[in-house]
Nucleic acid binder design. Structure first.
Lengths: 286, 286
DNA sequence: AATTCATATCGGTTTTTCCGATGGTGTCTC
DNA sequence: GAGACACCATCGGAAAAACCGATATGAATT
């Protein structure tokens, strides 16, 4: 039950060429090698792959059926070889990016598809965390790159650069929420209704007005709560436009929407691999 | 760029066991064989797979990444072996069934999922044809089994048996069609509106009332035309209930709906393989 | 320090792979 | 119909590899 890659290659090539000799020439081996390889493969498989009664061998039905399976094996084999080649050439085996819900956009996804095309063998991982959790994940080496709201200062082992595009944060409430009816809600109007706030795991954020306010660990959950009318919330504009258009309305409060600078952050300790530094550059050059 | 299955197996087993010796015992080979196989694989791949500084070898990051690829190769390898074993054991490489739109049902699909579970390596093909085309495809060996409206007699080289479940054929029109408003439409009422008929390729069916009637080669197209209100049509009940419920209404004409016997047909010349005869039996025993 | 269990390495045997040469067979040309 | 030609199967020997047992070494454990 052990099929050598040489035999499989010989079989596959002979099948497409329709000739053992042609396959041998293409593979740079002698004709007898290909002939014997296929004969041995037929013995191992227990099935005749070619009908040799004609001048040129033609695939049997079984051969036709098995050719597909053989191609799958060879394709997987090739992918393994390519992946190994990349790794041997210094490519990092995995790239982990941690993003805050705050920053994301259509451009982010376009960049990822570009990353996929450029590094098809790369294992990519995307984590979601807020604020200081992003830095923690990067410092401990769990992630290589982060996207988060720009901070005035970073720890010394963290590198950071600001993305050109700023994140838009607006105030939203459900269409049927009382605040939605007001032409220009004031800060007092907001205080009169329940607020929906993000609760980070390491909360350095003001838990002001606690008790009345509801919280959730991600903007997505927060948005769902807003859609159900539980209160108003600060939400990234792209998130609403993407998933809650028509169900939430933006509240025209003075000073809103805010636009927030977004930083790409990385660890100075762990050096980025080729894919990581490409992605870093790509995110910054927008 | 050629990785022997032995090396890959040794690597994969060592990775799950966390020990070369344990892998060797499991694979029935000597410890040195596994050690050398993995060492050679590392040379071929160009990357270190294990970190040997500790007592037991632990996967490197590259090894962890490549293990997935290796598993894919081995899985494809196994599938090839299983498929070959089936073929060697007399299994047909492909089963082609030709059905008429007339017969199909939820039970047909349930039977197919059962077929998939029972013969996971089988290549299955489903053709659609009407009436005599079904027999032609079977006679020429293009298909092994057929499902069609029961005929009073068959050619001598065709075997046939009747399925227990009968197909229900009703008269349908769009909800907004004039006929839909009638409490009990008569045959004259029908004649007063355009009929939608099936046109088989070898038409032995009466093209009566031609000129006025529109036709299509499949019940699905016919049904779409009925949904758009182009006329009334004879349609299999399952098709309407599945895809046009609420958009078509059944016309309560006297003598309708008809119930039609369905036959499984096969060629006496080509013997059925295991999967074919299983499916034949399964279709009949409902 | 001794024990234990693991891996790496080495020499030798067996197996597989590969090649060139040879012979048989169907096809095409003259 | 004879000959040339291209193709495939088979054979013998050489090269490569897979494999094993024995041995050395190294890291945890006692």
């Amino acid at each position: 039950m052990n099929f050598s890659p040489e035999s499989l290659q010989a079989f596959a090539e002979a099948a497409v060429q329709g000739s053992f000799s042609a396959a041998a020439r293409k593979l740079g081996k002698s004709q007898s090698t290909v002939s014997e390889a296929i004969a041995n493969l037929e013995i191992d498989l227990g099935v005749a792959l070619f009908d040799r009664s004609a001048r040129q061998p033609v695939l049997t039905e079984a051969g036709r059926a098995l050719l597909g399976r053989v191609d799958e094996v060879l394709a997987a084999h090739d992918r393994l070889g390519r992946a190994a080649g990349q790794l041997a050439g210094g490519m990092e085996p995995r790239l982990t990016v941690v993003v805050s819900d705050t920053y994301q956009s259509v451009q982010y996804e376009a960049t990822l598809t570009e990353l996929d095309q450029r590094y098809p063998e790369l294992e990519f991982e995307c984590l979601v965390a807020e604020h200081s959790d992003v830095l923690a994940l990067i410092q401990q080496g769990r992630a290589q790159l982060g996207l988060m709201a720009a901070q005035p200062a970073y720890p010394p082992d963290i590198g950071a650069a600001t993305v050109a595009e700023r994140a838009q944060i607006g105030l939203y409430a459900a269409c049927h929420h009382p605040l939605a009816a007001l032409a220009a809600p004031s800060a007092e109007d907001l205080a009169g209704h329940r607020a929906l706030r993000l609760n980070t795991y390491l909360d350095d954020v003001t838990p002001s007005g606690a008790g009345r306010c509801w919280s959730a660990p991600s903007y997505l959950l927060l948005m769902e709560m807003a859609v159900f009318g539980f209160g108003w919330a600060e939400l990234p504009r792209w998130l609403v436009e993407r998933f809650a258009v028509g169900r939430l309305v933006e509240l025209p409060v003075a000073g809103w929407p805010k636009s927030l600078a977004v930083d790409v952050v990385w660890s100075r300790g762990h050096r980025l691999g080729p894919a990581g530094s490409w992605l870093q550059q790509r995110l910054l050059q927008r």
